[in-house]
């Protein structure tokens, strides 16, 4: 530690924020006209080339599918890292005082039987609502995933909704019957198998002379089938991995 007197933390923070604001002000207030050329091209050819009416799907699964591959790898790495860190956290309940009035830890959500229902956060409201709404949320997630080429949605959005359905199902079982969807082995299996499928489907274009991530159905009557397939695979993968991470953070990894 140096001898010089340190500035107060508030002053340091104010200075940093002021500098950040000065740097970012031109970025936020720029009036440069946004180029329309890409939008016009996509409006004219996007649907014919990819088959998807939703241009966002056409981009992230057609034109820029490599981005999506990288993104799924990032998701995989995040899941591996989170699991690696959380698996060392054996039980948080022991490290916190056992005063019943404090909200101890989320870890207690995974307790079995009587201990579980005595947890302060486990109200009947939570169990009834999440248990009933879980299957509906799952269904809605699959709808968003499968209709991603026609309507707002897609694999990532549907996957996140599926993940919330999985979390609801994991929270809402009143009689202690665990659904297979909250088991880490099943979720991890879905995730790895869907990543493998994603790679295989991505390579399938090679055998049709379209190249990596080429659409093998491009010349057929339904070129959109490729996007639907990729959307479903990504939806399963995102749903499984985010549900996996959420359940692990609730303490249900065993």
């Amino acid at each position: 530690m140096g001898k010089r007197k340190a500035w107060s933390p508030t002053l340091q923070a104010c200075l940093a924020i002021g500098a950040m604001g000065v740097v970012l002000l031109p970025v936020f207030l720029s009036q440069t006209p946004w180029p329309t050329v890409a939008r016009d091209y996509l409006m004219q050819y996007g649907q014919d080339e990819s088959g998807a009416r939703n241009l966002v799907s056409a981009i992230y699964l057609g034109y820029r599918a490599f981005d999506t591959l990288g993104e799924t790898i990032v998701l995989l790495v995040a899941v591996i890292g989170t699991m690696g860190l959380l698996s060392r956290v054996e039980s948080l309940v022991n490290t916190v005082g056992d005063d019943d009035n404090t909200i101890q830890t989320v870890s207690a959500f995974s307790l079995r039987g009587d201990k579980r229902s005595s947890h302060v956060l486990r109200t009947h409201l939570l169990e009834v609502v999440t248990g009933k709404i879980g299957p509906i949320v799952l269904l809605f997630g699959f709808y968003v995933m499968l209709y991603g080429h026609l309507s707002p949605g897609g694999g990532f959005q549907g996957g996140v909704i599926i993940a919330s359905g999985i979390v609801f199902l994991a929270l809402g079982n009143q009689q202690d019957n665990t659904s297979a969807l909250s088991k880490s082995s099943i979720l991890g299996g879905i995730e790895s198998v869907s990543f493998l499928l994603f790679i295989i489907v991505a390579m399938s274009g090679i055998f049709f002379g379209k190249g990596f991530f080429g659409n093998p159905l491009a010349d057929s009557a339904y070129p959109v089938g490729f996007i639907v397939l990729l959307n479903s695979i990504i939806g399963l993968k995102v749903g499984a991995s985010i549900g996996f991470m959420c359940i692990a953070m609730m303490g249900g990894h065993d």
Partner: peptide, 18 residues
């Protein structure tokens, strides 16, 4: 609207979650 920023932000959101 331009769909390209939306598609890119899809990536950014997922990575933010990670």
């Amino acid at each position: 609207v331009d769909p390209i920023p939306q598609a890119l932000m899809l990536t950014a959101i997922v990575i933010g979650v990670c």
